[in-house]
Nucleic acid binder design. Structure first.
Lengths: 192, 192
DNA sequence: CAGTTTATATACCGAGCGGTATAATTACTG
DNA sequence: CAGTAATTATACCGCTCGGTATATAAACTG
């Protein structure tokens, strides 16, 4: 059991640094100080290792966001809650978050993309639902809920990635004020 | 010479679809209907092929943007010009644009990222310079020019990628109005 | 203690990787 | 037409890839 978690940790480090395709199984087991059969005993395949890594680590994001995304009649407040919860998750799991992002932008026929696709979709639906729930407040959106969802996540991710790059490793504070101004900027854009 | 361009075209198709790391040299030459030594005659290595592909195709983006980014005393107008020029370039070279984007989000230690890095930097400086030039109009930015540049490109890329995904292959119009509203949204955010 | 399950290592597999030595062919040049 | 330079193909290189057959330990279970 100790080995299993160690393998996951080493895999995250390497995938984060070089990308799934560029990392060999040999490299992972060497870093973990074990041998191949041990890895294959736990995960079955390199792809299985990636899937396990993603799904287990994604749990936290999923439950946290679901909680925050419960629409309470105030779009701005809900978006603020979600943004803050999201940023908090991302900043306390920077490597995993950056791995997720890099995989999200992978070409669509890439194998590794297929592993993140369901996560991204789940994610997307959580955000999209906010805008669907807020129809009476935002008015008829002409099926632009999806654009809003993409735009909202895009803005936040942009700033997050920028911050993750600037201070790699360092603990940087993203204050509630910054998030609020980000959300405000987004809201103003879609209202005008 | 005909072969050389054909190789570049096939490489773009494959890199775009699967990503640099996931495509083998064998696969490229088979698609191009030639053999390995021909590829190595022209490009020296797989990495060399990537570099040639990127630099040649990036020329258009670079010159077009440089032209559009000449600050004329009106930030909004300049940003609109740049955004429009950028969108036009991207939409008429969708595959290359998407390849660029996917490579931009690659992990920093990935080999292929090292090939796009200089292009991204060049790109970034062109945008950053707009904000530096506009100091008297925007006031003291407290060295936030970089954040503005990242944010500006981020917003546009978000929407572009969304559109590229929705209508892959189809020719979708992004009107000047949409771009203007995007720029306006961005401007309002940084002014308030 | 015997039997079984869990966990790990040694040693290996075929396939594909990026890359090349050599040679033949084609196209230009005197 | 001879000679040279530019292009292309055949056949191969060592290496790493993801993955596994087999054996052995260690840890539970009766």
């Amino acid at each position: 059991m100790e080995n299993k978690e160690n393998i996951l940790k080493c895999a995250l480090d390497l995938f984060y640094a070089k990308g799934y395709d560029a990392v060999g199984v040999q490299e992972i087991v060497e870093k973990a100080g074990i041998t191949k059969p041990t890895l294959y005993y736990y995960f079955g395949s390199k792809y299985g290792l990636l899937e396990t890594l993603l799904t287990t680590k994604f749990q936290l994001f999923s439950t946290t966001l679901r909680q925050a995304a419960k629409y309470d009649g105030d779009v701005a407040a809900t978006l603020n809650r979600v943004a803050f919860a999201y940023v908090k998750c991302a900043m306390s799991n920077q490597k995993f978050y950056m791995l997720l992002m890099s995989m999200f932008y992978l070409p669509r026929e890439n194998e590794a993309y297929k592993a993140v696709k369901p996560l991204i979709r789940e994610f997307f639906f959580i955000i999209k639902k906010i805008f669907q729930d807020a129809k009476e407040q935002l008015g008829n959106m002409n099926h632009r809920e999806e654009q809003f969802a993409v735009g909202f996540m895009g803005v936040i991710n942009c700033y997050l990635i920028m911050i993750c790059e600037q201070g790699e490793g360092k603990e940087i504070q993203i204050t509630e004020d910054i998030i609020r101004s980000l959300v405000h900027q987004f809201m103003h854009g879609i209202n005008s």
